[in-house]
Write a protein that binds this DNA or RNA. Structure first.
Lengths: 397, 397
DNA sequence: CTCCATTTCTTAATACGCTGAATGAATGAT
DNA sequence: ATCATTCATTCAGCGTATTAAGAAATGGAG
């Protein structure tokens, strides 16, 4: 439920209500003024006033009249956000390279690309991001409003600084400042999982949920927490380290994860480890793709690996369900290439371990997976920021 | 950080700012008008206006001048909440009986009592609560503003109804309505752990934290989640079922808890089970008190039981720390009779299992334990509600 | 001891955005 | 064609916050 929030005086009542109206238009699709008024308990007069401002500034437009609703009376005029007035760029950084996407302001991907990274030191990465951004910009037919960058590790969102990223080997890198200086466009930096959570909250399944969780499966296991429409990072950041939660004291080993942790069961590494151990003739250099391939061809031993994977996933989800009692968990990440293979055992285990009927009230959503999903998350950062900032900046100009 | 929130027009801007100002006075102790203005980014004039209203209505008073701060200039006049203008009652219901407390509006216990319950059916309990309330009322020297009732189980806070309580054997009991009709005073019903979390947020350690966790140890294991100053119950309630999280697939059995769950390690039952198994000559009918007693006398085998208990506690906390990265965890409940005995192994295990340096940033607080702590939580419900309602009810009367 | 600088609190004048009521616009029913 | 209905807009009035100026309280300089 959207409510008008963060009231008051200097940072005026107006900007507040403007933001709330905009949020309603964004989240509840094409919507009439009278609906907005009812939803926000605001007078129709105020809505007219506010929306005319938003329309004038090009953020919102009158899409069409509402022909669905019959009955007498004047037709409602439906308002919609002008998502195509600008585009934004999103770049996800990992040691595997840069994944880049250009999207509109609704985080719909217009184009995507991947750039390998020779090294992951800050200088190289900054150079590569600048090059990738230039390439994206040249392919854009609309003004490129902002750049979102996401990466694994601890990020200080306010200072746009990477506090600590083991995977990249970074500490205290002021990435936002470095890029902003070179690109002359506003840059946002965020943890990769939190960016994905934000993307879901603004443009994905979370659009209609106030609080929900995002679980990412891939090289590692991540958790994004959204509560009351805001991404929860913890008082000092660092929340959502689901991958490091201990599941079994005497659990299996993996190259990177501590034994028995969630990642020792659910990371790509773990999957390959199990395949090597249990799938007959699995080659030494085989990867996740091969396990998926074998299973999809119906190889029983490979299917068993996925069944166990699903069981561990279900157990992990049960932990979250018992703690958060969420109405939605979005599953995403490369680890879901074979979502169908793990789903049934995951759900069975979740039902078995969740308290009471909590499991019945959870919607499990699978984010259709593509290479650009992470980059889309990064772009969503930029899109959401751009929308809020221009929607609220009010009558100063 | 308190911010002025939930703005707008019909439910006026004023009530909003009034609430925010009141919150600052409550949370930041005796505080001057100028401090309030700075903290809320509100003009001094507005603060004068608002506080004079609060003072007139008897919610706040001018405590004294600030003599601590030296320097030139007029002394600041410190404002404080008038906590002693009314009292509230709190009653915690469990199958062991009613625990009752009378407190002022700062949740400071004025008197407490315990009533045994012959049966736990709704009629008996309602009768008993009414009797207990009458007893509390007769002992009060100030008007008794409201009654808070807390109990284990799933509570619909808005409808003041107990949706499901296995321990009491209740389903869909409209407890709030039943009591309100008979007592003619406003009644609040809440889950026991959430009430405790609210109490900590308003009147305890959480007063200076925006987000934190409360873990209760006793017959069961509970979790209260406070985020951004609000108790999180989940979209449909039922959040915080920490006790039912599976720790070890092949974990120990207990009478009530599923094998391997947190409660199978950390409930009172679990402690007694371990004592029976490992403490030489432990009597068949010995309880928790006896284990504590033996350990405090230095019996090694009893101390070992507590060391293991602490280890399981540390592991459970590590789970929460990895997920929430909280800055504060408040530990409370009967299970902490022997807090010193479990602390060191708990902290060691927490440090071992928490990701990176997350454990270093967590403050573990032990709520000094007494019989009336649960009842104080229930009273805090009533106190917080009374304060917000009278503080915000604005200029209508 | 008086006067001034300083800081806090208060009062007065002004501005802003919301509400409510009246009006206008668009459509179905009679 | 006219009316009832519903959505949108216009305008007067009002409440609350801001700014600016003044009053109150205090330390220090002359």
């Amino acid at each position: 439920m959207i409510e008008r929030t963060r009231a008051t005086a200097k940072d005026d009542v107006r900007s507040l209500n403007q933001g709330a109206v905009f949020q309603v238009v964004h989240r509840h699709g094409p919507v009439s003024r009278i609906d907005i008024a009812a939803r926000l308990q605001l007078s129709p007069a105020a809505v007219t006033n506010i929306t005319s401002d938003l329309i004038e500034r090009g953020l919102v437009y009158e899409a069409r009249k509402d022909d669905e609703r019959g009955g007498v009376g004047r037709r409602r005029i439906l308002l919609e956000v002008a998502y195509d007035t600008a585009s934004v760029a999103g770049i996800k950084v990992s040691n595997a390279g840069l994944t880049c996407a250009l999207t509109n302001l609704n985080a719909e991907v217009l184009s995507a690309r991947h750039e390998p990274l020779p090294e992951t030191d800050p200088d190289t990465v900054v150079d590569a991001i600048c090059a990738a951004f230039a390439a994206l910009r040249s392919g854009a037919d609309r003004p490129l409003a902002a750049l979102g960058v996401s990466l694994p590790g601890l990020v200080d969102v306010d200072r746009q600084t990477v506090r600590h990223s083991p995977l990249l080997g970074w500490d205290q890198v002021p990435l936002g400042r470095l890029l902003q200086e070179r690109l002359g466009v506003s840059v946002l930096v965020e943890n990769d999982v939190d960016a994905l959570a934000l993307a879901e909250a603004w443009f994905g399944f979370g659009r209609t949920h106030d609080s929900f969780l995002v679980v990412t499966l891939g090289r590692g296991v991540g958790l994004g927490i959204v509560m009351n429409g805001e991404v929860y990072r913890g008082p000092n950041g660092g929340a959502g380290e689901l991958g490091h939660v201990l599941l079994e004291a005497n659990g299996p080993r993996t190259r990177y994860a501590a034994p028995g942790t969630v990642e020792s069961f659910l990371s790509d590494d773990a999957l390959v480890r199990e395949a090597r151990a249990r799938v007959a003739g699995f080659p030494e250099d085989g990867g996740v793709e091969l396990v998926v391939d074998l299973a999809e061809r119906g190889r029983d031993d490979a299917l068993d690996v996925f069944e166990d994977y699903g069981r561990a996933l279900g157990r992990t989800l049960s932990l979250l369900v018992n703690v958060f009692a969420p109405s939605l968990i979005v599953l995403s990440g490369e680890g879901l290439r074979a979502a169908e293979l793990v789903l049934s055992s995951a759900q069975a285990e979740l039902r078995r371990l969740a308290f009471g009927d909590l499991a019945e009230h959870v919607e499990l959503a699978f984010e259709p997976w593509g290479d650009d999903a992470w980059a889309r998350g990064a772009a969503a950062l930029a899109a959401s920021r751009h929308l809020t900032e221009t929607a609220i900046s009010a009558r100063g100009d």
